[in-house]
């Protein structure tokens, strides 16, 4: 079964309509995981694609992401037993010495919309704090952001710290931010470079072989 009205409401960012449709589906006995995967996340995939093509813009993307979050909140009480299945856990942060959070927040929203679980460590995150979070949270991907050429070396330090902690092999590392390049990602031994929030989603999926 598909829920066309719900998908359309998420793509449009019509939060009231989307919540009402979600409630209707849940009350009608729909499998919440099915609504989440095949409707909400699928709608956000469309948003991500449109954004990548330049057919949707940041405010529209945010609106859709917020709409989806509201729908997930409606859906949550209907999950029984195992709870929600996610695509994987991503630990995100802006690196040490850097306070810029806009890009990192957009990435968090889009990854969440795509069905990943996010642990957002915030800004000015020291290498040790990334290591600690990896230990505690058991994430599969670490995503780092830097907006300054002077804070980029903290990305390399964090990769090293994760290596020294013996965690590197079980992790995928993704980096991004205005001065960051694919070449830099290669140089410091990161697995992936994402120039924008849309790419972060496709890269995270690739890294975890998720659909």
């Amino acid at each position: 079964m598909t829920y066309k009205a719900l998908s359309e409401a998420v793509i449009k960012g019509d939060v009231n309509q989307a919540k009402a449709e979600t409630q209707k589906a849940a009350d009608g006995g729909a499998d919440p995981q099915h609504v989440l995967d095949d409707c909400l996340i699928a709608a956000m995939d469309v948003v991500g694609e449109k954004f990548a093509q330049g057919a949707m813009f940041v405010p529209q993307m945010l609106r859709s992401a917020k709409t989806m979050q509201a729908c997930v909140a409606v859906l949550k009480p209907h999950f029984r037993g195992g709870g929600m299945t996610t695509k994987g856990k991503v630990i995100l942060g802006t690196v040490k010495g850097d306070l810029h959070d806009i890009g990192k927040n957009l990435v968090a929203m889009m990854l969440e919309g795509a069905g990943f679980q996010i642990v957002d460590l915030g800004v000015d995150v020291a290498p040790e704090a990334f290591v600690k979070a990896v230990h505690e949270e058991n994430g599969q991907v670490v995503g780092m952001s830097a907006l300054l050429s002077t804070t980029m070396p903290a990305m390399a330090e964090t990769v090293k710290a994760l290596e020294n902690a013996g965690k590197r092999k079980e992790l995928k590392i993704m980096i991004g931010g205005a001065p960051v390049t694919a070449e830099y990602a290669d140089r410091i031994g990161a697995d992936s470079y994402a120039p924008d929030a849309g790419t972060a989603v496709t890269e995270a999926k690739k890294l975890l072989n998720a659909q």
């Binding site: 813009f57 940041v58 405010p59 806009i102 957009l106």
Partner: peptide, 8 residues
Amino acid sequence: VQPVSVDT
């Protein structure tokens, strides 16, 4: 100055 796209 920060983007209005993210917060009007």
